[in-house]
Design a protein around this nucleic acid. Sequence first.
DNA 1: ATGAAAGCGCTAACAA
DNA 2: TTGTTAGCGCTTTCAT
Lengths: 336, 336
Amino acid sequence: MRKKVTLKQLARELNLSISTVSKSLKNDPEISEKTINRVHELASFYNYKPNALAVSLKSNKTKTIGIVLPEILNHFFAKALFGIEQEASKSGYKIVTCITNESYEKEVEYVEMLNYSSVDGFIVALSQETQVLNKLDHYQSIQRDNVPIVMFDRVSNEIDCDKVIVDDKVASKNAIQYLIDTNCKKIALITTIGGLSVAKLRLEGAREVVDKNDDITLIELELKDSNNVEAEIEKFLKNNDIDAVLGLDETAAAITINMSHKLGYKIPDDISVIGFTDGLLSKHSYPKLTTVSQHAEDLGARAAQILVNHLDNNEEKYKSKTEIVKTSLIIRDSTN
Amino acid sequence: MRKKVTLKQLARELNLSISTVSKSLKNDPEISEKTINRVHELASFYNYKPNALAVSLKSNKTKTIGIVLPEILNHFFAKALFGIEQEASKSGYKIVTCITNESYEKEVEYVEMLNYSSVDGFIVALSQETQVLNKLDHYQSIQRDNVPIVMFDRVSNEIDCDKVIVDDKVASKNAIQYLIDTNCKKIALITTIGGLSVAKLRLEGAREVVDKNDDITLIELELKDSNNVEAEIEKFLKNNDIDAVLGLDETAAAITINMSHKLGYKIPDDISVIGFTDGLLSKHSYPKLTTVSQHAEDLGARAAQILVNHLDNNEEKYKSKTEIVKTSLIIRDSTN
DNA sequence: ATGAAAGCGCTAACAA
DNA sequence: TTGTTAGCGCTTTCAT
């Protein structure tokens, strides 16, 4: 089958011992220059590369990071994954990616599997179901093995580990404030992701700002049945005399725009729209969507940096930190 | 650091030899039932799991597949990855994902890296640069090591391996035919992905159909500078009196719709639009885009199936095959 | 029915 | 300067 060159073969061919060859390859000063050269020559002739498995078994390090994502068809996570991959590969780490499809059970299974395949560390965004059930034993278990975890975006307070999050509350406040500043009075907040911690924060932020302004109304629409989102939003827009919408996820905002077209409302003249997550939909809607960018790539990259850093500088008694990545409101054409 | 239970520890605690424990765990009939039970009991007490690294080193199998993708922010590849992941994990395989960002150099680097970390096989979609340069030595090299490859979508004739592709030519023919059937006469073909093999096939298909119909005109617009796509398309639409557009990629189609809005053209009344790749943009454009679905998830899933199958049934002298996944035209609201 | 020993490919302490 | 040896955790052949 596979017939890669090993130290043994090099050693035999050079009439040296395995350890001499091994040391030569590392330019160990205790080996004569002549030998080192001979070894290097033959090694590069055969294009020798050490067997990563054996090195890992020996060193107890795999240079591999396990990534657990709830979804990949969601642009936010795709971008985060991109950021992670970029950053990890920069430091010579590989990533093993698992997608939980928002299922708790799959998440547990994957985390265990990755743990037994000896990843050096984890980067995780919790599945929706896990957040709802709030069951996190699988992470406690890997922490007992001293395997570091970095959580991002979908995090849990129950686990003491590094976290990289977005300041969803502030982001939401800013978005609402922007709507107010551009003369919106009756603002709708539409969400299809009610169960998530991030959604709650966004909701809180919105409420706080609205509560401070007597002349502003906030109407909340939470959509659970994902089949019917378009019709629900259409009905909602028709029956409520609003002048602005904050979509808590990208699709909600995109659909709002489309349903406005359908109903003949002009954007942003009749209704201003702001969405969360600056993905493809926002860039390619008409008019282009004003969005809260969570800088997903940065988020992922930062998570990877923190983990790699932790892994490469194995400090004693590590104290975990939570890092907040700033959001920004990208003003496009769906607001005044 | 990590303190997983090993066979050795179980053996010591049970006063047995390592090999007896190992065999017991596999319910080897030559071990007494009583011993087997004792072993199993202690093993599950400690939640023993074999060290995957050691098993791999021994068996020369890692149960890991290397995935090489040109992009991940592109919905097509995200869907394919999803399909791959689902299918692979179903068979107990992990996936290591690398993203080349369409760069030849990165692709080479990743393929070598994956090869040295001993993945059992590869699933690859070539980067644009690799297709243009047509340099494929890195794959020949892993084939010499007898590591199986499955290419999908972006494939190369130079490499003799399993392939899963979409019948882009037929898909394009069907799309054009549909436009003709709905009374379009002057069709524009817009592409931003000229260099790719798939684009060439789509172009060929379109030309073939148009050539057969004397009363139909085809105008081709190839956009190279990705910064300026919107403006270019807008200008093109204004200066050409066309009644249909086939976008060879999803963005081209989405932008066509948006620029039509801007110019006041009605879709589909003034211009019919069909796109390739049935992604988020198509579902959330207004009006909803009629698209050629390449069934990216199926494509990925199929690639994974073929590879896993090959891996798990290590037949002698394998003859490679190319599988074609049918496309379908999803009729939505951007055509009559 | 159980165990000893070799070996997967590599590293590193220790010997020579 | 080079080589011997043990060991990472596991499987497997060959004793006992």
